[in-house]
Structure formats: C-alpha cells, structure tokens
Design a protein around this nucleic acid. Structure first.
Lengths: 140, 140
DNA sequence: CACGCTGTACTATATCACTAATACACCTTT
DNA sequence: AAAGGTGTATTAGTGATATAGTACAGCGTG
C-alpha cells in the first residue's frame, strides 16, 4: 500500500488519510467498486488506532467518496455529480483560491496559463467528457 | 470594514481572518504599505479576542504578507517572490488540488478550461507581468 | 449455529489547538 | 516622565484529536 501518515505534521491524521484516498480515487489508483483495506488492517500498517481510520472512512462516506457496510467492508463509490449550480459555485471558489495563491507566489499570468494547460492535458482523460451520455460505445 | 468571522464554522477564527486578508491583499483591496487595523480595533469589531487577531497577524508576517512592529502597528508588506523552483512546486501542487476538486465535482474538462480562462482574464492585471521590469511607464 | 471477518460504539485518558482574560513591553507624542 | 496608542507574553479553560481497551453489530462461510 502507498498510504503514509505523519503524526507530527500538525494536520490531523484522519485528514491526511482522507486527502490521500481522495487523490487516489481521483487519479484512478482506486477504481469504482474496489474494496478498501479494512479498518484494522490499515490501522496496523500505519501504526495508528483503528478508530482514527474509522473516522476518516466515515467522513469519506458522508462525502460520497466511498460506501461502507458492516461485515462487508468499504468500497470506492460511484462518482456522483451534485446540482449544476453548486458545482459551478464550488468550481469558482476553487479557481479564486488558485488565483490568490498565484498572486502570493508572484506567478505571472502566462506561466499560470501554461502550467494549467499542461496539467489539464494530463488529467483530461480522468475528467468527465463534455456532452457525453452513459452510452459506452456510441457510434455518433 | 469588510471582515467577518463565524466562530461556529469549524474553521479556526484566525484562519478565517488570514484567508480574508490574503484575499484582500491579492485583489488590491489592501495596498502595499497600507496600515492594517490595530489588533484591538479589529478584535472589537469582530467581537473576538485581541490575541486571536494577533495570531493571524503573526502568521501573516511569517508568510511575508504583512510587516508588524510593536508600538507602531501592522502594514501590508511588499510582495516578494520566492525561489523559482519552490514557486513552480507550489503552483503545481495547487493545480493538482484543483484537478482533484474538479474530478470530485464531476466538472468536465471543457467547462474547467472555460471557467479558468474567464477567471484568469479577471485576474490578469493583478498578476505579475510576463517579462517586465520595474519601469512604470513603458511606451512600447 | 459457530466462526471469522467486517465496521461501529463506548469509556477513559493524554495531549494539543483554540480562544479568552489579564498583564506586560515597545513606540510616539506631549 | 506621562499618556495613549501599538503588538505580545502568560495563564487558564474548553474542546478537538488520538490512543487504548473493550464490547457490540452485521455479513458470509463452513
């Protein structure tokens, strides 16, 4: 497994775990339906308490990232999209944050644009396609 | 003043303050050299403790956003750029975070691209110019 | 059913982050 | 020096975080 955690980092352990799992799901390292390591197993590997892992899992479930069932385990959930309006608002907020960060870093507009394009290209396949339906093999 | 704070939000008050001030500096609402409201004054307005404001100011100073001196007050610092390498790393991290967020929101690549371009246009004048010197009145 | 695996609940404890109240230290002006 | 403004250190109370230990609840298999 590729999870790691630093109890000294100041960031709560369960938050670190959440972020790593979110990233893993987003990048495709964890795929839909895949079973997550059990609470006890992961706790053993990371030398932390099962309750801490459980807390991370619970919050991830509330956020719709994973689904969990007693006796069965936890599984990567199907990605669900929220209302379009909330989606836009959240995206705008994220972009605003990016701009503030770029300003603070003294990144010029051109550099920011170029780096964004590069990053987007790397992620294009992971993001939802433009106006595509659930038809897997559309022949257009 | 346009600062506000929600003690119930779960986010520490001093963090909320920091973010708002950062944003104010980035957008130009606060300009270089301008004096910040005093610790006590701001604490009175927000109905919080002066120490909480002080903590925000202290962290902002460590991050180079403001400069502060006992008996004088706090002032918006001159924006300083870090090493180019660290700049790139931080930017990359921010973009990565944006992509993960976009994935979670089920935003498609085209929408993300369009929204980014719009946002960048709005911020273009605030960001550092490409290869420009301190000459204020270039005639080009 | 019995067993072994899952996640969860509960209590107790230790530590640390956050906030607040008070007192202190520094600078400028009078 | 005195006064009134600045930021800061000290102390204390409250709550979040993490741990440990134990017990409980649901699911699948033999």
């Amino acid at each position: 497994m590729w999870y790691y955690v630093d109890p000294q980092s100041g960031v709560p352990i369960y938050v670190q775990l959440k972020e790593q799992i979110k990233k893993a799901v987003a990048t495709g390292l964890l795929t839909e339906g895949e079973q997550m390591p059990s609470v006890r197993e992961l706790a053993l590997q990371l030398t932390i308490n099962p309750n801490t892992v459980s807390k991370a899992y619970q919050e991830l479930e509330r956020e719709g990232i994973i689904q969990t069932a007693r006796g069965l385990g936890s599984f990567v959930a199907k990605r669900q999209k929220g209302k379009e309006q909330e989606q836009k608002i959240a995206l705008d907020k994220a972009l605003e944050k990016l701009m503030i960060e770029a300003y603070q870093l003294s990144v010029d507009a051109d550099t920011l644009h170029n780096e964004f394009i590069d990053k987007l290209a790397a992620w294009k396949d992971r993001l939802v396609k433009g106006a595509q339906n659930n038809d897997s093999g559309n022949r257009t």
